[in-house]
C-alpha cells in the first residue's frame, strides 16, 4: 500500500469528514490502477496453476498470461483491452459523515475523468441506441454499491472493471426445494461447460445460493470478485466451495477453453436465506484478468491497495 500524504479525512467533534474532491481523484486513479496491476492473490493463483497444469497447450497459454502480467507492469499498460463495466463498491464507517448524493457524483466524475484523461476505451453504451458517450458512464453506470461497516474512521472504495466476456456468461436458475442441493451443483457444472472458452478461463466461478432472484445474482458477483484464498463465511457455502472447485477442474475445459487442467482458479460461493418454496442459484464468472483496486480513507490519509 502506498500512502498519498495528504489527510483525506478530518476529525470534527465525533464525526469524520471526507474530502469529496479527493474521492473523485481516487475514483479516477482506481479505475486506471485496476486495469494495470493484478492483485497478489491472483498472481499467486497463476503461479499455482502454472505448477500443476499438465496439458501442453494449457501450459503455453498460462505462460502467455503470466508474461502479459509482467509486460503490462513493465510498459505501464492495461492488462486487457476490455475496460469493462465500471463497478465501485463503497463501505462507510460508522463515524464517517458525508453527503451520499455528493459521494455518488464524485464517483461518477472520477470514472468519467479516468476515461477522458487517460484516455481509456469507453466500453459503455445506451442499451437501445447503442450510443457511446465516451465517458464509461451512462444510465445507472458506473454501478455503485454502498454498504456500512462498524470500523468508525474508515471509508473504502473498491473498483472492479468487469469484462464483458465473463459477464456475458451469467446465469440464474430458480430451482425448487424438491431439486435440492443437487440442482445447485449440476447447474454450476453445466454453466462451466456452456461458458467454455468464452469467459477467458482460468476463471473464478462465483455462485450465489439463496435470496431473491436479484440478490442471488448479486451474490454471485460478490463471490466472483472476492480475493482468491478467501472463504465463504457460511460453513455450508465453504464446504460447497471445496467440492465444486475440484469438480469443475475435472472437466478439462482448460485455459481459453483449449483444453487442460486449469479451468478455474476456484469456485466461490455466497449464500443468503431464501423463501420456503425457493431454491435459487446464480453463476457469474470472473475471467483470468481478475482486476480490482481499493482506496482506503482514514484520518491518517489515503492508501491504495487491492
Amino acid at each position: 500500500m502506498v500512502g498519498s500524504g495528504r489527510r483525506s479525512i478530518e476529525h470534527e467533534d465525533e464525526q469524520v469528514k471526507v474530502d469529496l474532491k479527493q474521492i473523485e481523484e481516487a475514483c479516477k486513479e482506481l479505475y486506471i490502477r485496476a486495469l494495470k496491476v493484478l492483485p497478489p492473490d491472483i498472481k499467486q493463483g497463476f503461479a499455482r496453476l502454472d505448477k500443476t497444469e499438465t496439458d501442453a497447450t494449457g501450459r503455453a497459454i498460462l505462460g502467455t498470461m503470466i508474461k502479459n502480467i509482467m509486460v503490462a507492469e513493465a510498459t505501464d499498460n492495461l492488462l486487457c483491452q476490455d475496460t469493462g463495466i465500471p463497478i465501485y463498491n463503497v463501505t462507510i464507517g460508522a463515524g464517517v459523515e458525508l453527503d451520499g448524493y455528493q459521494l455518488k457524483q464524485a464517483i461518477i466524475k472520477g470514472c468519467e475523468r479516468a476515461t477522458r484523461e487517460y484516455p481509456l476505451r469507453s466500453s459503455v453504451v445506451h442499451p437501445v441506441t447503442r450510443k457511446n458517450e465516451h465517458t464509461s458512464c451512462g444510465r445507472s453506470v458506473p454501478v455503485i454499491h454502498i454498504d456500512f461497516v462498524p470500523d468508525a474512521d474508515t471509508l473504502t472504495i473498491e473498483m472492479i472493471p468487469k469484462g464483458s466476456g465473463s459477464e456475458n456468461n451469467s446465469f440464474l436458475k430458480m430451482a425448487v426445494p424438491a431439486d435440492g442441493i443437487d440442482a445447485i451443483k449440476t447447474f454450476v457444472v453445466d454453466c462451466v461447460l456452456d461458458a467454455g472458452g468464452k469467459t477467458c478461463p482460468p476463471t473464478i466461478v462465483g455462485v450465489g445460493v439463496g435470496g431473491t432472484a436479484d440478490l442471488c445474482v448479486h451474490l454471485s458477483k460478490v463471490a466472483a470478485t472476492r480475493p482468491l484464498g478467501s472463504k465463504c463465511d457460511d460453513p455450508e457455502g465453504a464446504k460447497l466451495e471445496i467440492d465444486l472447485s475440484k469438480a469443475v477442474n475435472q472437466l478439462g475445459v482448460g485455459p481459453q477453453g483449449l483444453g487442460g487442467d486449469s479451468t478455474s482458479f476456484a469456485v466461490h460461493i455466497e449464500t443468503a436465506a431464501t423463501h420456503i418454496t425457493m431454491n435459487p442459484v446464480a453463476v457469474n464468472m470472473q475471467c483470468h484478468s481478475a482486476r480490482r483496486a481499493r482506496a482506503t480513507f482514514t484520518p491518517q490519509g489515503l492508501t491504495y491497495g487491492f
Binding site: 497447450t57 443437487d182 451443483k185 449440476t186 457444472v189 453445466d190 461447460l193 467454455g196 472458452g197 467440492d243 465444486l244 475440484k246 469438480a247 469443475v248 475435472q250 472437466l251 478439462g252 475445459v253 482448460g254 477453453g257 483449449l258 483444453g259
Partner: peptide
C-alpha cells in the same frame, strides 16, 4: 479444437457430478 475440447469435457460431466454425490 473447441469442438474436440467441448465434447471431451461433456464426456467428463457424469464423473464430475458423481464426485459431487449428485
Amino acid at each position: 479444437l473447441y469442438t474436440e475440447v467441448n465434447q471431451a469435457a461433456r464426456g467428463r460431466r457424469a464423473a464430475a457430478l458423481a464426485s459431487l454425490g449428485v
